[in-house]
Design a protein around this nucleic acid. Structure first.
Length: 228
DNA sequence: TGCCAGGCCGGGT
DNA sequence: ACCCGGCATGGC
């Protein structure tokens, strides 16, 4: 019988993960046919609903523009037209082309070669590109390159905050460090955890529903009493 | 209808 | 080091 039995406890990161697994099951991320498509999706999904990104990617594919070569060569207005449904289409067209040209020049268009470089350095290179910030860079590293990094997004912050794990005002790298320090270093775990946070977030953890009324993890403030 | 979505940048304090 | 406005489409 532990001393804190019956007291309301803050969940551990692991127990939160296991709750999510039980509530939602495997997420099978990232839905894409190739690592390059993952990277394109990571750029297009910035602050955008995934359903809109799917349309944009489908149109790129139909136009045979889902490769670094074509993206780099086609006129930007053509790219803009194809990715229009994913929003911010002028900016994102420029980002896709900047990324594609870098990918061709720096790695000869080889994803293998790209992910052969050490993750730390590759992350810095990605962050140097216009339109690629920490979340996009980490999504690329984790979901396209299978490197062990943790992706932090708005849902992650909001859910962790509502479970009293963080204040929510920490900078990106600090929130990421919080996760990495508390979880075993496993790509599959990081993959699944982030996917689960997004899945539960988009269903139950909206900005406008601070009570998380129907969340399977319980209402806010949460009181998960399982200690894994 | 207004609010939100798997962010990021540039300028201002 | 923060804080903010801008970017844009489609779903509910």
């Amino acid at each position: 019988m532990r001393a804190w039995r019956g007291r309301r406890q803050r969940p551990s990161l692991r127990s939160l993960y296991h709750h999510l697994v039980r509530a939602l099951g495997p997420q099978h991320w990232w839905p894409a046919k190739s690592p390059f498509e993952v990277m394109v999706g990571a750029i297009l999904t910035q602050n955008t609903a995934w359903v809109n990104v799917e349309r944009a990617i489908a149109q790129l594919e139909a136009a045979h523009a889902l490769s670094a070569r074509t993206l780099a060569r086609r006129p930007s207005t053509a790219i803009q037209r194809l990715i229009r449904p994913s929003g911010y289409f002028r900016q994102k067209a420029a980002v896709l082309q900047g990324f594609s040209r870098w990918h061709l020049k720096r790695y000869q268009g080889s994803t293998r070669a790209m992910f052969r470089t050490p993750a730390r350095r590759l992350r810095q290179e990605l962050l140097g590109l216009k339109g690629i910030g920490p979340e996009t860079a980490d999504s690329i590293l984790l979901y396209a390159g299978r490197r062990p990094t943790f992706v932090i997004d708005a849902y992650t912050r909001r859910i962790f905050q509502r479970h009293h794990l963080i204040s929510g005002r920490e900078p990106y790298d600090e929130t990421q460090r919080f996760c990495l320090d508390r979880l075993p270093r496993r790509v599959q775990l990081y993959n699944e955890f982030h996917a689960l946070l997004v899945a539960v977030g988009k269903r139950y953890c909206h900005r406008t529903d601070p009570d998380c009324a129907s969340c399977p993890l319980g209402k806010f403030p949460h009181h998960i009493e399982v200690h894994a």
